[in-house]
Simulated assay, not measured.
Amino acid sequence: MDFMELFFISLGTGVVVYYGVRLLLFSRMLFPKLWFPLPKTFFTSMGEWAVVTGSSEGIGRAFAFALAQRGMNIVVMSRTKAKLDQVAKEIGEATGQRVKVIVTDFTKENIFSEIEEQLKDLNIGVLGELLFVPPYKIQFQKKMACCTITKVINCNVKTMAKCCLIIYICLYVYCIYRGKGMILNVSSGIASIPFPLYTLYAASKVFVERFSQGLQAEYKDKGIIIQSVAPFGVSTRLAGFQKTNMITFSPEDFVKYSLQYVSAGDKTNGSICHTVLGWLLQTIPLKILYAEPMMQGSQDYVKRKLIVGAKLTSTKSCVCGHF
C-alpha cells in the first residue's frame, strides 16, 4: 500500500468517524429524556429560590411559571411593576409558591447594589436571565448610535455579567452544603453568525454564549450548571406575536422543551427544531445572507413584526389592563 492510498483511507476513516460522532450527538437531542434524565427533585435540590430576570412577559414569564410549577419560589425582575405584580399574583395562585418582586431597569447604571441587597438572604439555586433590548440597525447619527449602544451593552452584556456575579456569590455559599446550582443565560440563535441588521444585538448575544461557556468550564467542578440557551423563533411581543408552528414556539412550549436539556452541555438551542435551524444557518454561504435583496427583505420583515408587536401590545393593554 503506497503513501497516497494510505492517506486517502485515513482521510475517509476520519470523515466517517467525525460525522458518525455528530450523528450520535444529534440523536441525543432527539431523546432528551433518555440521554439527559432529570429526577423530579432536580430543580428543588438546587435551592429554594429561582431568580428570573425579564420575567414580566414572554420567555422570562414562562421560565418563572415553569420553575414555580417544579416547586421553586420565584424572584421576578423587570422594569414594569404592574406587570410584575400581575405575574407574581398569577404564579402564586397557580402554584402556591412564594413570589418576590424586584422592579429594576437593566438599561440603567448603578442598579446592582440594591438588587444584591434584596437577594442576599435568599437560598438561591437557579438564575434564569432573559435580557433583551430590541434589535436595531445602527444609525449614523452620533446621539442615536450612542444611546442604542449603551442600552444594548448595559442590558445584554453588563447586567448579565453582574447578575451572574451576584447570584454566584449566593450559590457559592449554599454550594458548600449542597454542591448544586444552576444559571441559565438566554442568548439567541442569530448569534451563530455575524448577522446584518441585528449586528449589535447579535454581537452582545455572542458575549452571553462565550461568557456562559467560560464560566461553566471554570466552575463545573463546584457542581454549578451554567448554560447558554439560544432560541430562534418564539412567539413574543418583540417577535410580533408570530403564529406558532413546528419552528416558532409559544414561550411556554419553548421553556418546556429547553428545560429538558439543562444537563446537555454549556450551550443548547432549547429544542431539536432550533438545533437543526442553527446547523442550517451555519451552512448557508455568508454572501447569500449579505446580498442586498436579502438584507432589504430582512429589514422590512423586522419592521413589520415590530409594528405588529406594538399594535398587539396596545390592544392587549386596552383589553387586559395589565399586559
Rank of each mutant, 00 (worst) to 15 (best):
L84K: 02
R70W: 00
I226F: 05
L238R: 12
G233Q: 11
A230K: 01
Y201I: 00
N156C: 06
H322Y: 14
S317E: 13
W279A: 13
K100T: 09
E218I: 09
D2I: 12
T104C: 08
L289C: 04
V133A: 14
S263W: 08
A217K: 15
R79D: 01
A62I: 03
P293V: 06
Q296R: 15
V15I: 15
G321N: 09
S235D: 04
C175L: 10
Q69C: 11
E93D: 11
Y18W: 13
L127P: 03
M1D: 15
A68R: 02
Y201D: 03
A68N: 03
Q141V: 14
K108S: 12
T244M: 04
Q282N: 10
L197Q: 12
G71R: 00
F8Y: 15
I153S: 05
A239Q: 13
H274F: 01
N156Y: 05
Q69R: 13
D121A: 13
M72H: 00
F106P: 03
M295L: 14
R79G: 02
M160S: 09
L23Y: 12
T283Q: 10
A230M: 02
L6F: 15
L277W: 04
Q141R: 11
L286F: 07
K220V: 12
Q227L: 05
M77F: 01
S314T: 12
T95I: 01
